[in-house]
Design a protein around this nucleic acid. Structure first.
Length: 273
DNA sequence: AAATTATGCAACCGCAGCCTA
DNA sequence: TTAGGCTGCGGTTGCATAATT
């Protein structure tokens, strides 16, 4: 057998062995799926608060979880992070989401980055289940933010800002709905109220633009760790937060309740010291 | 009260982009 | 330069609960 064939064969065998020995990202066998239990949450939180975020792939093994790394990351990001806000989006947040969506489209992570304490998944779900319907009701196409064809808008609350947006040279013809009221929001008929609301909407638009123009400067590692690639968070939480138990978190979050913003604020204060 | 339908949310899947060797 | 691994993103699914018949 020619030497080159032997060498090629050996190289191939090595590669095959290596590939065979490589663990797939998510080994379907022996990996638990579905809803997380409190015990699993506890393990994950304990691990991350103790060691910080490292490579997600290693987390399940090190934390003693029968989950894939992806699942752990998702659980932490969307549910266990202590800086998460709980509850429905506020009217202001909704408006901001709509504004940002008009500019960014379905880039939920980008939108979420502008709403501290909210996750992309949460915003995406809220958009699909609530905001979309509201916009359709108003006669606005949620995809294009343009008036729906052959649709009579329930309340023609076009505003001055629409005129402004009409002049916009954006590739997306942005329909401004600052004057449109979401359900649960008051619908003033008085022109002065109308204009004041428009002003508020304009401010909101300015805010959205401002947020888009310059990245939100978040000095608090606690708020920025989610998008950070370093492990600053880990050491910080270890030093400042970890007291050997996750009871505080379990109690605090009550796994569905509680206002974590207060916590973040408190923590932010602590980290500034 | 039971069955059916609608709704909302948590979780999963597959892909793309970035990083590294 | 390129191939492989890892992470994050966006779309989709499935389940639990609420509402309706």
């Amino acid at each position: 057998m020619p030497l080159w064939v032997m060498e090629a064969t050996a190289a191939l065998e090595t590669k095959v062995k290596w590939q065979m020995g490589r663990q797939p990202c998510c080994d379907k066998q022996g990996v638990k799926r579905g809803p997380w239990t409190a015990e699993e949450d506890n393990k994950l939180v304990s691990f991350i608060l103790t060691h910080g975020r490292c490579c997600w792939r290693a987390v399940p093994k090190l934390a003693g979880l029968l989950r894939c790394g992806k699942s752990c990351r998702l659980r932490w990001t969307n549910y266990l992070r202590p800086d998460l806000k709980r509850g429905l989006l506020t009217a202001d947040e909704e408006q901001l989401v709509v504004d940002l969506h008009a500019k960014l489209g379905n880039r939920w992570s980008k939108i979420a980055a502008k709403l501290p304490g909210r996750t992309d998944n949460e915003i995406k779900n809220h958009w699909n289940t609530h905001i979309k319907k509201k916009l359709v009701k108003m006669g606005i196409d949620p995809a294009t933010h343009q008036p729906l064809a052959n649709t009579k808008v329930a309340s023609p609350i076009r505003t001055t800002s629409q005129t402004t947006s009409a002049k916009s040279s954006d590739t997306v013809n942005h329909l401004d709905y600052k004057g449109l009221c979401f359900e649960g929001m008051s619908m003033p008929t008085d022109s002065s109220e109308q204009s004041s609301r428009n002003t508020g909407g304009h401010d909101q638009d300015l805010l959205a633009n401002r947020l888009l123009e310059e990245e939100l400067l978040v000095d608090e590692p606690w708020l920025s760790f989610a998008s950070s690639k370093d492990d600053e968070f880990g050491s910080i939480t270890e030093q400042l937060l970890w007291d050997g138990t996750t009871d505080w978190l379990l109690d605090y979050q009550d796994f569905g309740m509680g206002d974590s913003s207060l916590f973040v604020q408190d923590l932010a204060g602590v980290t500034r010291v």
